Amino acid sequence: MPPRPAKEIFATSGKEPWDISTILTLWYGDPQYGSFGKDLARVVSAVRLLLAAALLDKGEVTCADVERLCCGGRRLGVNYWVGDVVAVVEGRLGVLRKFSIPCAVDVRRMPPLARYVKWGLARIDSGRLVVDLEKVLAIPIVALIRRVFKSASSCQGPVWRVASCAKADIAEAAFALAALRLLYPGLFEIYGDDRSLNDVLTEIGVGNVVRAYDLWDKAVGLTLQGYVVSGGARPRTVRARSAKYSIPPILAEIDYTDAVVADVGSGFGTKGAATLRWGARYAVLVDVDESVLRERGNGLKIDKVVADAHMLPLRDRAADVVIFWNVYNFLQMPRLAVEEVGRVARRAVVFSVYNAASGRFVDFWEFLEVARRWGRVATAKRLGSSQFQAVVLR
């Protein structure tokens, strides 16, 4: 089950759970390294260098190591500008005045490094930052971020799942993930229900500035309810040719006599068409991919509609049965699609989730929670951790 809600963690603070000043005060108030937390909150480039050593388990780091973590693709990041203001920059190394991520192993060009040297956390040697990993990892904020970083590599999916893998509270994990994403935009992307963290930065605009704490509120707030995608690519469905002939046995557990069936995210339409052989009166195949719908032959009892699951062009309760098969975790706004399926289905929903590498990971508890929104779960099958199937009666 998910860890306890973030608000419970901060119940005594009197502030919202993602308030960054509260987080830094409660978790990272070590007076010796107190300003390290402030440097992180302002997304200072020197923090990127020091954290890179902890993330890569290296005693020496250079700007090439920072580039390896931070850059690539078209995602945006942020960097300290002046005071409590940060600027939105492109996710590539360069210079701040050209709105890219700066990096220099030089205390004159990156003054916070002088503090880290003074504290004995690191020293500069021939363009390299030589880091005392034992001391750096003794800072709670660094240890947390490193632990969450390693967990996100193998436990991508809902943030609470990453938190569980990292043995952290969900608020801690959300904070660490937001920090990693803002510092190193090349690592992964974080998606909420209807937008990504990159969308938030795009709205601000490259070269524009924003108060660091305001940005953290948005970033951690989105992350608390979001999910992590490795590499940052937005989840998409991969069509397997074998799906053209696949008819799962669970489909036969419903009485289709004289039913109108809507196959949402139908792909090749095999499942929707199969219900005609079991007594269905009519099948509507709905998919955003016109090319796969064209591979299904026409018929008097089959209609093919190019449409998005987030906004179905069907009347309320237009279908007796809705088939919603291996679609949920590939959608940008799955909650909207769940509501649409519930609006359209009159008698039953046949629901499946497939945890492919190209989609968001959904565990069995989330799967059941979604299924119960439509009605009573009559049948639920768990095929390892890769696929879950259910019949839901309205």
Rank of each mutant, 00 (worst) to 15 (best):
R382V: 14
P111L: 14
M311P: 02
P249V: 11
S45N: 13
D363W: 04
D132G: 06
P248V: 13
A233E: 09
A356W: 03
I247C: 02
D65M: 02
E253C: 07
D199F: 04
G375P: 03
V117F: 04
W374P: 11
A168H: 06
L276Q: 07
I141Q: 03
W81S: 07
F175V: 09
A52I: 10
V136A: 12
V261I: 10
N355V: 07
W119F: 03
A41H: 03
I254N: 04
T379V: 15
D255K: 08
R75C: 08
Y80N: 13
D125H: 07
L177S: 08
I139K: 03
R123H: 13
Y80L: 15
Y213T: 10
R317W: 10
V210P: 00
V200W: 04
K15H: 14
E67C: 10
F324R: 05
R296H: 15
V305T: 03
R376F: 11
D308N: 15
W119H: 03
M110N: 15
L55P: 01
L93S: 05
A212S: 15
P334T: 08
A212D: 04
A357F: 10
Y33I: 12
A259C: 12
L300I: 02
A219G: 02
R123L: 13
N355Q: 11
A168L: 06
L368K: 08
V107D: 08
K304F: 14
V130G: 00
V89Y: 13
L121Y: 09
P5M: 06
A273P: 01
L222K: 09
S45M: 05
I9W: 01
A52M: 13
V350C: 05
R123S: 14
S246H: 13
A380L: 11
G297C: 04
A318Y: 00
V159Q: 06
V306R: 12
P2F: 13
T379E: 14
D287P: 05
N329H: 06
L201Y: 12
G192H: 10
K135S: 12
L180K: 00
C71T: 15
R147Y: 00
A233F: 06
K7F: 14
L222Q: 11
L300P: 15
V377A: 14
V47C: 07
V82H: 01
R315S: 05
A274C: 02
E90P: 05
I170C: 10
D57H: 14
A6F: 02
G265L: 01
V61H: 14
R315N: 02
E340G: 09
E90T: 10
T257D: 00
F149V: 09
K118G: 02
E253I: 00
C103R: 11
K301M: 03
R277Y: 08
R335L: 11
Y328A: 06
L93N: 04
A233C: 03
G73W: 12
F351M: 11
N329M: 04
